[in-house]
Simulated assay, not measured.
Amino acid sequence: MDPNTASARMNQYEKGKHAPDFQTAKRLADELGVPVAYLYCDDDLLAECLLKLSKLSEEQIKRVMDSLG
């Protein structure tokens, strides 16, 4: 993202005037260190779960999933 236009673009995303395409959302998520699904999550508890799961290994995620039934 061009630093000269980044602030204006982010402002439009935040206000809901425009939505980033998936590739842009992916780049934003990578920059923020969050999974891209986090950016689309409209539930705070689910968003927190996504953040915590994203820090686990694949094996740990499988164990969590197994424990959920």
Results as ranks from 00 to 15, higher is better:
33 G>C: 04
30 D>H: 07
49 C>F: 09
62 K>L: 15
37 A>R: 11
60 Q>G: 03
17 K>Y: 12
12 Q>S: 14
54 S>Y: 14
49 C>G: 11
32 L>K: 07
43 D>L: 05
56 L>D: 01
14 E>M: 11
35 P>N: 08
12 Q>I: 04
59 E>G: 06
16 G>V: 09
62 K>Y: 13
15 K>P: 00
65 M>C: 06
51 L>P: 00
47 A>I: 08
8 A>L: 07
43 D>R: 04
69 G>T: 06
66 D>Q: 15
2 D>Y: 04
21 D>W: 00
38 Y>E: 05
36 V>Q: 02
15 K>M: 10
9 R>W: 02
44 D>C: 01
27 R>D: 12
28 L>P: 00
66 D>G: 08
39 L>K: 04
24 T>P: 00
48 E>V: 15
54 S>W: 15
24 T>Q: 11
37 A>T: 13
40 Y>V: 11
34 V>I: 14
66 D>S: 15
62 K>C: 11
59 E>A: 14
46 L>E: 14
58 E>G: 03
12 Q>K: 15
64 V>I: 14
34 V>E: 05
62 K>S: 13
62 K>M: 11
35 P>I: 11
27 R>F: 07
30 D>K: 08
18 H>V: 14
53 L>Y: 07
44 D>Q: 12
58 E>I: 09
3 P>F: 12
20 P>V: 13
1 M>S: 05
50 L>N: 05
34 V>G: 05
64 V>Q: 04
22 F>T: 14
67 S>W: 07
47 A>T: 07
52 K>F: 08
55 K>Q: 15
24 T>L: 11
41 C>H: 01
2 D>G: 00
8 A>N: 11
60 Q>F: 01
50 L>Y: 09
25 A>R: 07
43 D>G: 02
15 K>D: 05
26 K>G: 02
24 T>G: 07
9 R>Y: 03
38 Y>N: 03
60 Q>T: 05
1 M>V: 12
58 E>L: 07
52 K>I: 13
1 M>K: 00
69 G>I: 03
38 Y>K: 01
53 L>A: 12
52 K>V: 13
39 L>Q: 07
52 K>A: 14
